[in-house]
Design a protein around this nucleic acid. Structure first.
Length: 648
RNA sequence: GCUGCUGUAGCUCAGAGGUAGAGCACUCCCUUGGUAAGGGAGAGGUCGAGAGUUCAAUUCUCUCCAGCAGCACCA
């Protein structure tokens, strides 16, 4: 029999018969490895222990100690075990697909009746029984006709469709968990007993379209999470609780920052404290924009459809626009307006006033632009996804040659802002030319190169997102990671030669002729609403002093300190701090508890001693202790600390 | 928009075919207390909206609205 050479991670190579399986390889190495083996990597590909190896390759045998392959196998087997459990309980249910996802898996089923939360418990029990059976996992390769007729006989139409969608005459792999069988590319564990029975949990049921297509039937998707040990599962569940505790909708209500109500779905009623955060953030952004050479404008909310027709939004974006029809009795014709969903067309109108020279470029035009978009009801989510919002929007009008420098300048500005606002990590996604596009290849080459050079100039790396650019130009998306590892897409930078063309923007060049400027759409926060939602969750409501809506509460211990408290508050306010007195007839314990829960960063307690000494007793949020210090010193210290990062 | 679930006091939630309850918050009184809940009393609800069934609906049915989870969407 022919031999192949397998190279192990330590660099040693050994000869084996062609077609040997990793299970046999493990057995040849040692009995203990053979027992512990769960899968292998063959030339970097995750490989089932039962699959034969036909060529020379680099091989590594995995055990449960190898986290990534172990979790993938556990979750993948759990998906199959869950599907088997469901069909054992309800044989009429049709199975579809069940992939591994972050932290777990899901499986989509077609069943007339909805699954209930009680059903999930029942399925879990059934899964545990299957695991206890320690059924062997077997695999075979089938040819296509056999697989199709097999699933037709079982009346599993979704599987038939899946097979038909698999390209070419590729052989199909079948897996059995005991007698239950599924089409699956593998790999899998060796028997169901290898899945930890106490380290998984079914989380919820939700609808999901077959093949992700909203025109296809809606299936029922069951989500589960699975780990190697109960400890890992518990840690994950704890993390979810932590995320729920940070939920901006809950904190927004508890901290009295904003509310939303039925009469204005997807729109925010900002309360005084929430609006303080908003305006503080806006003031900060305004300073940043000025420092980076932007001019600020403001443009109308309600604009005639003619402009939207010219910009192309009427065609492409109408379903997302709030249309306002004005049926004036004496109007010659009915006026149809739309609330602006974006600021760009209006900014071109500002640009178009007066003749522009190449000397005017680059022109960086910013607006805290209030936009309204009719988002689908199911997309709304707290203040993170709303129908009325304000962007930190700007458009840079420039020449093609200026794109690179503008892009680099923008990335540097964005770095500063994210750092100041508490986010150190962000990633750049570079979306390049899509299949359906306008413009010459040469032009795409130039613009994409300019963006790439700009990123390199800032010393950053990027992830390529091929084909995901807009039809008229490439874009950069900036994704940042928050305190609990969630990723948010906020900033964007997009090159657009199209809108200046449509709306007739031009400038007079050095040659005295008219030219089209490029337009760079860019935002850093995205929208104030979403960004503040993220800030709330990132800080769990415990804002740094400069952003905290209520910075200092002056709490009296005895009513004899009331006058002094008024004096302290006034000194703090004079120093620019947001301070208020709490002279209620309550004990200091009560006041400290209440203001701590309201996440006020600093509490100044005043009793007879402080009145006497003209001092304060400062307690910081989260600290168990307090420090006594003279009033003047406390005010100076808090004032310095409350300066926004760009003014320090 | 789609599937499922939910909607009762400011908040968190209980409840039942015969027009409602708890805790916290709120108001008032007592208490002047030294760093995360002092004590007492009181007020507060068209049970999301509309229609239907019924002697009787907040409870059952239907429609609508909003929210939640996921999907789809996200210039």
């Amino acid at each position: 029999m022919a031999q192949i050479s397998l190279t192990f991670p330590d660099g040693n190579a050994r000869e084996f018969d062609t077609g040997i399986t990793p299970a046999d390889v493990a057995a040849a190495i040692s009995k203990s490895l053979s027992k512990k083996a769960i899968s292998a990597s063959v030339d970097g590909r995750h490989w089932d222990l039962q699959w034969p190896v036909e060529q020379d390759a680099a091989i590594a045998i995995h055990t449960m100690d190898d986290e990534a392959p172990a979790l993938e196998l556990i979750r993948h087997d759990l998906a199959h075990i869950m599907a088997r459990a469901v069909q054992e309980i309800w044989p009429e249910v049709k199975v579809t697909i069940g992939p591994v996802i972050a932290n777990g898996w899901y499986y989509d089923f077609d069943r007339e009746e909805p699954f209930t939360p009680e059903d999930l418990g029942r399925i879990e029990e059934q899964m545990k029984e299957i695991i206890a059976l320690r059924d062997d996992v077997r695999t075979e390769v089938w040819d296509r006709p056999r697989a199709v007729s097999h699933y037709e006989a079982l009346d599993e139409p979704y599987k038939v469709e899946l097979i038909e969608a698999i390209p070419g005459d590729q052989p199909l792999r079948m897996y059995w968990h005991g007698d239950w069988q599924d089409l699956c590319r593998g790999p899998h564990l060796q028997h169901t007993g290898q899945v930890p029975a106490n380290a998984f949990k079914l989380m919820n049921v939700a609808g999901a379209y077959w093949r992700g297509d909203s025109t296809r039937p809606m299936l029922q998707r069951i989500y589960g999470v699975g780990f190697r040990t109960k400890k890992e599962l518990d840690a994950h569940l704890h993390m979810l609780e932590e995320a729920a505790r940070r939920d901006h909708r809950r904190l927004g209500r508890e901290m009295d920052l904003f509310h939303m109500q039925e009469e204005a779905p997807g729109q925010v009623f900002w309360h005084p404290d929430g609006w303080t955060i908003y305006t503080t953030l806006q003031d900060y952004m305004r300073r940043q924009q000025r420092a980076h050479g932007y001019v600020e404008v403001n443009t109308p909310q309600v604009v005639d459809r003619k402009l939207w027709e010219a910009s192309g939004h009427w065609d492409k974006y109408q379903e997302h626009m709030f249309i306002v029809e004005v049926d004036e009795e004496h109007a010659r014709e009915k006026a149809v307006n739309a609330l602006k969903p974006m600021n760009c067309p209006c900014h071109v109108q500002v640009y178009n006033q007066g003749l522009k020279s190449y000397r005017d470029l680059p022109l960086r035009m910013a607006e805290f632009g209030s936009c309204n978009r009719y988002e689908p009801s199911g997309a709304l989510h707290g203040i993170m996804r709303v129908r009325g919002f304000t962007q930190d929007d700007a458009h840079i009008f420039c020449t093609k040659d200026q794109i690179e420098a503008e892009c680099a300048g923008f990335i540097r500005m964005l770095e500063t802002v994210y750092r100041d606002l508490g986010f150190e990590d962000f990633e750049i996604m570079f979306a390049t030319r899509p299949d359906k596009r306008v413009g010459s290849e040469e032009s795409w080459d130039q613009v994409e190169t300019a963006l790439e050079q700009a990123i390199r100039a800032t010393g950053r790396s990027f992830t390529l997102d091929p084909g995901e650019g807009a039809f008229y130009g490439p874009k950069l998306d900036f994704k940042l990671t928050d305190a609990i590892g969630r990723v948010w897409q906020l900033g964007t930078f997009q090159v657009d030669p199209n809108l200046p063309e449509r709306l007739g923007a031009s400038y007079v060049g050095e040659d005295g002729a008219k030219h089209r400027p490029y337009m760079l759409h860019r935002a850093i926060l995205g929208s104030f609403e979403r960004f503040i939602g993220i800030l709330i969750e990132n800080y769990t409501g415990r804002f740094p002093l400069w952003l905290a809506p209520r910075q200092v509460v002056v709490a009296t211990i005895v009513s004899d300190a009331d006058d002094y408290a008024a004096e302290v508050v006034s000194a703090l306010r004079k120093a620019g701090l947001r301070a208020e007195a709490d002279t209620r007839n309550e004990k200091i314990n009560y006041k400290v508890r209440e203001h701590s829960m309201a996440k006020v960063p600093a509490i100044l307690a005043l009793g007879a001693r402080e009145v006497e000494e003209r001092s304060v007793s400062l307690r910081r949020l989260g600290d168990k202790q307090q420090t006594a210090l003279p009033l003047d010193e406390a005010v100076a210290m808090l004032r310095a600390e409350a300066l926004p990062p760009d003014l320090r």
